[in-house]
Write a protein that binds this DNA or RNA. Structure first.
Lengths: 133, 133
DNA sequence: ATAAAGGTTCTAGTGAGTGGAAGGTCAAGG
DNA sequence: CCTTGACCTTCCACTCACTAGAACCTTTAT
């Protein structure tokens, strides 16, 4: 399939897909006319990239995640270590996102129509105290 | 408190904090010596920024989220609309992140020691089909 | 007094795209 | 056959969100 189609299916722009090819994240086949040609498997990878990027992983982290996805050597210690580290990070992100959501919900519900300048909920918004990593 | 301290407490670098001030996200008081001076409330805001950024929200989105946080006019329709849109987005991110985690877990567990070139889990990695927005 | 640590501003560079020009390809209609 | 419009190609310049480093000032500890 052509790049426009792959873009639509993956949620990435065609420009971004070309850029990912440039930096070696995912190289596509070429049709006889020179057009890039994507398989469904490529589209899966692209969607995977779209998600991980939008969830705050860097391109380099996505490259590692993709290697879990594509690597024939999936049982290697390195790859497993990466996967485990990523899992930990994902769990942290999940916790933070959940907290953010709860706070926002509370804010929407409880501060509705409330004109008090110092809504008591505000102070909780920074999340629980924790030492910086 | 000085910027270094605020940086440590918020998880942002001092450079980033200065940058956020540059673009008008959060302006700090100044002490007599010219040093920036942060309150705990500022630190809450900074941590809030650190989180929302790391969870994939753009700086402009963070600016909106911060306005929920800081705005005295919290009951306004605009602000509430923003909050609701953000909540929807957060829920979507939560779902995606959960899916990513489950997939990664499955991959780590089930592909251990498995040298087959086409691990059947792989095909699931792109997530459920959905039409691009 | 002096050194180290931390603050200031400034300019420049990086990572991750995005926009637009200039041109090639393809399917449909006149 | 020719044109029109949608889609593809490459390339270069621009934006956004930092990040590094220089040059210099302030505070703290010895």
């Amino acid at each position: 399939m052509n790049i426009g189609n792959a873009a639509e299916k993956s949620g990435l722009s065609a420009k971004t897909i070309r850029y990912y090819e440039d930096i070696g994240l995912l190289q596509a086949d070429r049709a006889d006319n020179g057009y890039r040609d994507y398989s469904m498997s490529d589209v899966h990878r692209l969607r995977f990239l779209q998600r991980s990027r939008s969830l705050g992983f860097s391109v380099e982290e996505c490259r590692q995640l993709l290697s879990l996805y594509s690597d024939k050597d999936r049982e290697s210690a390195t790859v497993k270590a990466i996967a485990k580290a990523k899992l930990t990070e994902i769990d942290r992100k999940l916790a933070e996102l959940t907290e953010l959501r709860d706070t926002l919900r509370l804010l929407v519900r409880n501060c509705h129509g409330d004109k008090r300048p110092d809504c008591p909920i505000i102070e909780g918004l920074g999340g629980k105290d924790r030492v910086a990593a």
